[in-house]
Design a protein around this nucleic acid. Sequence first.
DNA 1: GCCAACGTTGGC
DNA 2: GCCAACGTTGGC
Length: 147
Amino acid sequence: MKTEPSTYSIDRLMAEKTTHWEGIRNYQARNFMMRDMRIGDDVIIYHSNASPPGIVGLAVIASDAYPDHFSWDDASPYYDPKSTKENPRWFMVDVAFRSKFKNMIPLEVLKSDPNLNDMLLVKKGTRLSIQPVQEDIFDYIIRTYQS
DNA sequence: GCCAACGTTGGC
DNA sequence: GCCAACGTTGGC
């Protein structure tokens, strides 16, 4: 799951322990939350629009998907008039902190590792803010880079 | 249903 | 700040 540290960082997640992952406004990303995520699933936290961008820690899914009420709040940057309480368009999940890497893994390092050529994150044109990570890739990253 | 125009993401 | 690569919107 990607987040811009200026909006919500791994440090804040570490301090708050659990958060709701509001603001997803892309159908594919939403569908991953609604269809594929299960409580207890491991999550890689990635800082985008950071210097450098990269993987900063781990988290775990802590709820099923439920309506993102920020989409109903016209004072929120995530407001969407097409989403209503009766017919919610956008959903979120709760995410619980698991760990922060002592040394984050810069995107540049991920890109230069041939074992990660198939990881969506390093592929050109993949902008999704929520991406599935294959189990073997997840395990490889933990084994190789976790610190 | 097509597609031009526009908006967003996110690395650099 | 630039801009490539998407995604969305809305007229037709």
